[in-house]
Design a protein around this nucleic acid. Structure first.
Length: 778
RNA sequence: GGAGGCAUAGUCUAAUGGUAGGACGGCGCCUUUACACGGCGUAGGCAGGGGUUCGAUUCCCUUUGCCUCCACCA
């Protein structure tokens, strides 16, 4: 064996070995364990946070493989969403709109080739034991087919509907958004008070919405309400008459206590519009320009200043002040959102709340408390799921509309996927028989597709379908998207199959930067995984990921990686020691050998139970603890016998070390494989990752040996301490030690381990704690 | 405003209804044929308040601080 272990060299070589021998290939048969791997978004960057969560899933995958499961561990990349679109647009200096959908999808596929290679290289190097035969991207033909098929099926079930509704809209990206794509931003803005009538003064931050004012609201608790409610007032400048209505959503303490409702200034306006059947008055177009004749073509902000000037002139403006206020913006481009009335496709699920809650209770959550998020989300749902997006890139809706009667026309399953923009419908209108149709130009929200990953992995409806993997065993993911990805996957898969898509959910935390902040490209705090792997080894990086418990965030600590590298080094050195002193034999006659095997049996039991419960960090901890104890004590204690080719010592040393290697293999797949190849392989192509996980051996768990061995261990530790206090080297020779009450078998062990010439069984002086043994040292 | 999580030595991180374990860093000792990327030893810690209990770092309530998701934001 080499004197030093070189992780970079070894890891690249071993990764090739695994690939060549198809170690991670899914083989049908036996107990299947299928994992619904999260497909990372192709946005251009991978950081150690990815390494953190993917490693945690990999620990479980490797454990299950060693437990004899047929592990189905696929991998996908999510490239049908906005982040990919923006990346591709930026890199090619084009816009999707100008290039056109089909050409743009081609451009995406060529542009992301480099990223694809990079992503795959990184995940491979990290030792993620994915079977790359089951690789997909969410814009691929097969996935488009499945996604469109899903839509058509849901339509047939009556689960989708199209409705003209106010929609959250981004005027910069010119697209409808979901609630999920919004974030808060504090903006400097003007807060003005406008007099509608002598006793009706409203406060607003959006005076440009005046032409769209359709009602005035006052709280029923407001003492002015009695007098004002039901009256009509004229809107300044624009002159339309609007009614004063009462509603509890008005806070009498805020502003002037009187609010105008415009179509639409904010979400409350939308609620009032629906609740009171108010008329619609649109004054802003998709691009964020005013459409009212008064300001035609003006930008919203310019119109705001212009109207404030006019209100001043006409003496309607009572007060104007600068405030900071929080508004909803589109998370990608930070543009303030507007509301547009658009025809959108929805998936109906509000009526399924009880069923969805029941499914959430059926799922085994790890950790258990993660279920609360799921339930909390469902209980708060108020709208159905809007799945259409007015963008060019994405998976198109497989729909044409009858030119004559507007009835949707869907294609045949065998013709999927379709792009209605570039092809004509083969079918005639099912309602009126017309053969004239217009294509749907919208695309589906990316969640509408990613919510199908269990069915995508199953290759649902394709010739190559793998039905036995569904329902899958495990959904691993982070806690932030329980309400998006996990929830929507339950919805869609349940609608299609009547089953929960997985048995277990494993919810991981975030890998954060060293200061505990999330890593973002924009924050400039990303740490890339490959340089870390090159410096310390992927195993060392994985060690960091294994050190925090499931569901907890962890900040990236280089020193934790270094600790992992030390563990690798220690493993290597023990292996070196063993390889230098290897001899045959299979007895276990010596007390210390029975002792360490009994301790190992306890460790094995604990580690296995913890792993079965997805407590990988606990499993790693007990094995690691055992290993250091094994090195610092057992190995030191038996050296004198190993040098004399004692077969019992040799057998136990190898058996215990092999078990440790196997139990650390899920965490440190490379160094354990390398040592396994050097010392324990059963022939060419054999891998530790296909070897059997150590079982709990009752016979090995020998209580008497455990007790006696502990006494001997404590006696040796006592003598070590004494030598230390005398400033002696630990292997310094002692002439004579008196021991009272030492188990008979222990005497030669203490003598050999502590380099004692003679042990006398006589009256001891100092009591060795917890042993009942007394010793006299000089 | 709602839901959830977290709070442990200088730093990071475990376990636990009864002496809180480890790592990095400090300090001291030991170069012994696997390893000084090592060994042995030492100093140093449960956010504040209240409750349950014979006993609370652990369970409950509360305050404070941090994080995530949701809602509100005239």
């Amino acid at each position: 064996m080499n004197d030093k272990y070189n992780p970079k060299e070894a890891e690249e070589r071993i990764a090739g070995f695994w690939e060549k021998n198809k170690v991670y290939e899914y083989k049908k048969g036996g107990k299947t364990y299928a994992i619904d791997t999260p497909p990372p978004t192709v946005s251009g960057q991978i950081h150690v946070g990815h390494a953190y969560s993917y490693s945690q899933t990999d620990f479980v995958a490797r454990y299950r493989r060693m437990k004899g499961y047929s592990v189905f561990y696929p991998f996908g990349l999510d490239n049908n969403g906005l982040p990919t679109e923006l990346l591709v647009e930026k890199q090619n200096n084009v816009t999707a709109e100008h290039v056109g959908r089909e050409k743009f999808i081609e451009l995406v596929e060529t542009t992301i080739k480099d990223y694809e290679r990079l992503y795959i290289e990184i995940y491979k190097r990290l030792g993620i034991s994915v079977d790359w035969n089951h690789y997909y991207t969410t814009i691929s033909n097969d996935v488009q087919k499945i996604s469109q098929y899903s839509f058509i099926e849901l339509y047939k079930m009556g689960r989708t509907y199209r409705k003209e509704t106010p929609t959250i809209w981004c005027t910069k990206d010119k697209t409808a958004l979901s609630q999920m794509e919004l974030e808060d931003k504090t903006l400097r803005s003007k807060f003005v008070k406008i007099r509608f009538a002598p006793d009706v003064v409203i406060a607003t931050t959006r005076p440009e919405m005046l032409p769209a004012c359709v009602a005035i609201f006052i709280s029923p608790d407001d003492k002015r309400a009695k007098e004002l409610a039901g009256k009509k007032v004229k809107v300044p400048i624009f002159g339309q008459e609007v009614k004063i209505l009462q509603d509890r959503r008005v806070d009498p303490e805020k502003g002037t206590g009187i609010v105008m409702c415009c179509t639409f200034g904010d979400a409350t306006d939308v609620e009032w519009y629906k609740a009171y059947n108010l008329p619609l008055s649109v004054v802003i177009n998709e691009k964020g320009q005013m459409t009212h004749e008064h300001f035609k073509g003006m930008k919203i902000k310019d119109a705001r200043s212009a109207i404030i000037e006019e209100l001043k002139k006409s003496n309607h403006l009572i007060e104007e002040k600068e405030i900071d206020h929080v508004v909803n913006v589109h998370e990608r481009c930070k543009t303030e959102i507007e509301f547009m009335v658009k025809k959108q496709w929805y998936i109906k699920y509000l009526d399924m709340k009880d069923e969805l809650l029941r499914l959430g209770r059926e799922l085994n959550w790890h950790p258990e408390y993660a279920r609360n998020r799921y339930e909390n989300w469902i209980n708060g749902l108020q709208w159905d799921w809007a799945i259409s997006r007015q963008r060019f890139f994405g998976i198109p809706f497989p729909i044409w509309y009858c030119k004559n009667c507007d009835e949707p026309i869907m294609p045949d399953k065998k013709d999927l996927p379709v792009n209605p923009l570039s092809m004509k419908s083969k079918a005639k209108c099912p309602k009126c028989g017309s053969s004239e149709s217009v294509p749907e130009s919208d695309v589906m929200d990316t969640w509408a597709t990613s919510s199908l990953t269990p069915l995508i992995n199953r290759r649902w409806g394709l010739d190559s379908e793998i039905p036995e993997i569904y329902p899958m065993a495990l959904r691993p993911q982070a806690h932030d998207i329980i309400s998006f990805w996990l929830f929507t996957t339950v919805v869609k898969c349940y609608l299609h199959t009547g089953k929960l898509p997985w048995k277990d959910a494993m919810i991981s935390g975030y890998g954060l930067d060293p200061h505990g902040k999330p890593m973002h490209k924009s924050a400039g705090n990303t740490i890339e995984p490959l340089p870390v792997a090159d410096k310390y080894g992927a195993d060392a990086l994985r060690y960091w990921a294994s050190s925090s418990k499931l569901g907890e965030d962890a900040s990236f600590q280089e020193k934790e990686v270094i600790t992992g590298a030390r563990l690798m080094n220690k493993l290597w050195n023990v292996a070196k020691f063993i390889s230098k002193n290897k001899s045959g034999g299979k007895d276990m006659s010596n007390i210390m050998d029975r002792w360490i095997m009994a301790r190992l049996a306890e460790t094995t039991k604990q580690a296995t139970e913890m792993f079965d419960d997805y407590n990988y960090s606990g499993a790693k901890r007990v094995v690691e603890e055992f290993f250091w104890f094994f090195c610092d004590n057992y190995v030191e204690f038996i050296k004198h016998r190993i040098y004399n080719n004692d077969t019992s010592a040799n057998y136990a040393l190898n058996a215990a070390f092999l078990s440790v290697l196997k139990m650390l293999a899920p965490f440190m797949p490379y160094v354990t494989e390398e040592i396994y190849q050097e010392l324990y392989k059963n022939g060419p192509g054999d891998s530790i990752h296909l070897s059997e996980w150590p079982g709990f051996d009752k016979k090995m768990h020998d209580k008497q040996s455990l007790e006696d061995g502990d006494k001997i261990y404590k006696t040796i530790a006592f003598i070590r301490q004494w030598k230390h206090s005398k400033g002696m080297a630990l292997n310094a020779e002692l002439e004579n030690v008196v021991l009272e009450g030492i188990p008979e078998e222990g005497e030669p062990e203490v003598r050999g381990a502590m380099n004692i010439k003679k042990i006398t069984r006589g009256k001891g002086e100092a009591e060795i704690p917890e042993t009942g043994i007394r010793a006299k040292l000089q």
